[in-house]
Design a protein around this nucleic acid. Structure first.
Lengths: 348, 348
DNA sequence: TTGTAGGCGTTATCAG
DNA sequence: CTGATAACGCCTACAA
């Protein structure tokens, strides 16, 4: 059967109408063919889908979003796409979302971790079904103000003690990340190898992840009778961790062991120790990181680190998203993630 | 002025209608207020925008896309979001696109570099205005079949000789990446330091980037009177490059210098040489990479590498996208990117 | 199981 | 410069 003039010369995409005409069915039937829930005689559905494929037709998600209220877009806000942990998380998240029929919509905030309202307004225009903020200093209130339908997901770091009350406020779901186990294991290990004076090369000052890690380290060290950690200010980056380490050992008092706020920072620490200060790792100084990114097993570093299970974390996030979408009016949802120590060569 | 019942209790987002009502103007005026090109009395525009902000209104891009035919979405297809070069490129690209009012829509292909049609059909549903494929083995024909409005952008690696004819076929734009300059500089440097037997630790076999690099290396080495490179098969990853290096020196004939298909591979080469084979870099073996990712200056590697200027590359891509959108029927567009050697510590 | 009617929120077109 | 009207492509009623 030859294509009509219209079909062959059409510039734009094929529409449902064209498929319907060709299959001798109504437009609605075409819509139903693409919606598994709708009832349609199997043979008819099959025919429609076949013709759709021939004509290279796919339903337009923008039009679909307009009427159904679901965009199948998940907004992801990151300060730094190319930082190692984030990029690994985005990768895994995109794969998982794709499998569920969603696509990842990426937004970058300013590097200083400030969440400008302009970006939020901008993002809202795309009408994401859900938003995950890998950004630290934005309050649920602010985000909720800009997102009407989507329920934001927060990464939360509970204190060690009793479960805190949830402050009343706009609805948001959260992923609780528990640092205690991993930090306890790390401090034990360091103590076991005789470390007493432990330094902490920090992450970005305002960052909640950084605060949570530093606090937990302080708590665990106190419980185990150690003096508070020596704090060396840094910002999660290799370069600043490198510089902070030089300061710590040249100007400051040095340390037996260094805890870095993340793995990349730990690499900076290790390189400063080995290549500039001529100290051996782990013989002279032990080093522990946070995250367990893919590079941490590379031989040049072979880093002992407090691991967050990336796959587990992404699964938890996707669960939160899907549960919320299936039940928009549900009370706040939570998922919890634990940490554990991965022992490699920088402590010993 | 008190909000009406409807406005305060409304679940969904504010609509243009609500803003219009409140500002005593027509819906169309609201639309115009948000469109810089449209003519509207400045005072009126200001009023509308103020009220819009109060009501927290932003135009719905899905609806806008439906009628205007522009989604302001740029699809990016990557095999591996978290590989270093890609993540750095996505980061820079997202920033640049955001500044132009576009958002990045991320898609992951299978790791084996195969571009399944299912993914393309899936992506098309989102109606991207443009598509950048960081994927290798997909032909323009395939991509064009699935994208009607969007014009794909290809990364192309011209041979050294005369400019080839463009094969007739579906329209697509391209970014030409010229390897010659950087490779010539690198080979000179290696020769200058006495290297004669040069090995190439490859990238993924099917990858065009890999083929282009290997070919250019072969050509340049021949021109300079060197024997063809010894090929060690790898796949751009640290781990396989590490293993390939062990093979090369334990089972194979070894080499004076190793060219890795990318920086991450070079890190694997260096670590294998230093930590497993007890060879010194650069004294015993010299190493050169490709890309110049952010990690290449880290002290543990301090890699000499053939640099692609990321910022320049992203600017070129954005130029291609904008030019094409402003002129959909333009003939094929091209941009060209050069390479140069960044000299650090792994050759000397 | 199928088809008809109506509307989702916006912009283009055409009047004034 | 402004406003009415008609699409855009699809889905959810509702009726048959």
């Amino acid at each position: 059967m030859a294509l009509s003039q219209d079909e062959t010369t059409a510039r734009g995409r094929a529409t449902a109408e064209m498929v319907a005409e060709r299959a001798n069915v109504s437009r609605v039937a075409v819509s139903r063919a693409f919606n598994p829930h709708a009832s349609l005689k199997p043979a008819k559905r099959e025919l429609i889908l076949r013709i759709a494929q021939e004509l290279n037709y796919t339903p337009d998600r923008a039009a679909r979003a307009l009427v159904s209220g679901r965009s199948h877009l998940v907004g992801v806000i990151v300060p730094d796409v190319c930082s190692h942990w984030e990029s690994q998380e985005i990768d895994a998240l995109t794969t998982a979302l794709q499998a569920e029929g969603f696509a990842t919509l990426l937004f970058k905030t300013r590097i200083d971790y400030s969440m400008d309202e302009q970006l939020l307004a901008y993002m809202r225009g795309f009408n994401p079904d859900s938003v995950i903020a890998f950004v630290e200093n934005v309050k649920p209130t602010t985000l909720a103000k800009f997102l009407d339908r989507a329920v934001p997901i927060y990464i939360h770091y509970p204190r060690s003690g009793a479960p805190e009350d949830r402050q009343a406020g706009p609805l948001h779901d959260r992923l609780n990340v528990l640092h205690r186990t991993g930090v306890e294991q790390a401090v034990s290990l360091l103590q076991g190898y005789g470390a007493r004076r432990i330094a902490y090369v920090s992450g970005v000052d305002k960052s909640r992840a950084n605060t949570a890690r530093e606090d937990m380290l302080r708590v665990v060290m106190a419980e185990r009778g150690l003096a508070p950690p020596i704090i060396a200010a840094s910002d999660f980056s290799y370069d600043r961790a490198y510089a902070a380490t030089l300061d710590l050992f040249r100007v400051g008092e040095g340390a037996d062991a260094v805890f870095a706020a993340n793995d990349v920072g730990a690499f900076g620490v290790i390189d400063a120790l080995r290549h500039e200060l001529n100290l051996r790792v782990p013989e002279d100084v032990k080093v522990v990181g946070f995250d367990d990114i893919a590079q941490s097993h590379w031989k040049s570093y072979n880093l002992t680190t407090v691991k967050f299970d990336l796959e587990e974390r992404v699964r938890a996030l996707v669960r939160l998203i899907l549960r919320r979408l299936n039940n928009p009016d549900a009370p706040p949802l939570e998922e919890t993630l634990n940490t554990r120590l991965v022992v490699r060569g920088t402590v010993g």
